[in-house]
């Protein structure tokens, strides 16, 4: 268990619904088996409807999220508008590939709604920036196997926002309950065209 990706633990998942997307993460921060914090969210907002989830090495999660805060602020100053999810995904990809031979130990997930087209968008990355454009869901973190199982079993196309919230919450909660390194509550964002709902879930505290 010396993989940098599995030292601190954590899980993140994003899903597409009907004219909406959802992204959720757990709240645990640990050092191997020892839990250090139960308030370490792994989702970061970048503008009105673009969200980034980061799992992996906690120090890199903090650093990379700050790096993108800087980059997105610079983008906003130059362009005088918010960054869209697709543009942000490409920024994430190229920024990760810059560190091709000394990567950030993170597995990012991007979710958002394109302001122009109104279409939902999600994608995932490996630690060196290869993009996975999925039409259904993206998972990452130490509970990714479990998340693949729950998402593949629970997800269906064209879920309305409330149903999507229930689906992503059940998928995440049940997945992290079978992973010793993830859990301790969750944050869930439901992103619609002109509304974002953030909910805090209380999960098992063990």
């Amino acid at each position: 268990m010396s993989s940098p990706f599995a030292i601190n633990g954590g899980a993140c998942v994003a899903m597409v619904g009907k004219d909406c997307v959802a992204i959720a993460c757990d709240l645990r921060l640990g050092l191997q088996a020892l839990t250090v914090s139960n308030d370490f969210p792994k989702i970061f907002p970048f503008g009105s409807s673009t969200y980034l989830g980061l799992t992996g090495l906690a120090t890199d999660v903090a650093t990379v999220s700050e790096l993108f805060r800087f980059k997105v602020n610079m983008y906003r100053l130059r362009e005088e508008r918010d960054i869209g999810p697709q543009t942000f995904a490409n920024l994430v990809s190229s920024s990760l590939y810059e560190r091709r031979f000394g990567p950030w130990f993170v597995s990012p997930v991007v979710a958002g709604i394109n302001e122009k087209t109104g279409k939902p968008f999600i994608c995932g990355f490996d630690s060196i920036g290869c993009i996975d454009f999925a039409k259904d869901f993206i998972v990452s973190g130490t509970a990714s196997d479990q998340l693949f199982g729950t998402c593949e079993g629970l997800w269906e196309p064209d879920l309305e926002p409330e149903d999507l919230f229930e689906t992503i919450s059940q998928a995440l909660l049940n997945a992290v309950d079978r992973d010793a390194l993830s859990g301790w509550g969750a944050h869930v964002y439901i992103i619609e065209k002109d509304k974002v709902t953030k909910r805090l879930l209380k999960g098992r505290q063990d």
């Binding site: 196997d145 199982g149 729950t150 593949e152 629970l154 049940n174 309950d177």
Partner: peptide, 13 residues
């Protein structure tokens, strides 16, 4: 092989 995928689904359902 797929126990880690199936088991949390079973917990839920």
């Amino acid at each position: 092989a797929a126990a880690s995928l199936i088991m949390p689904f079973l917990d839920n359902q």
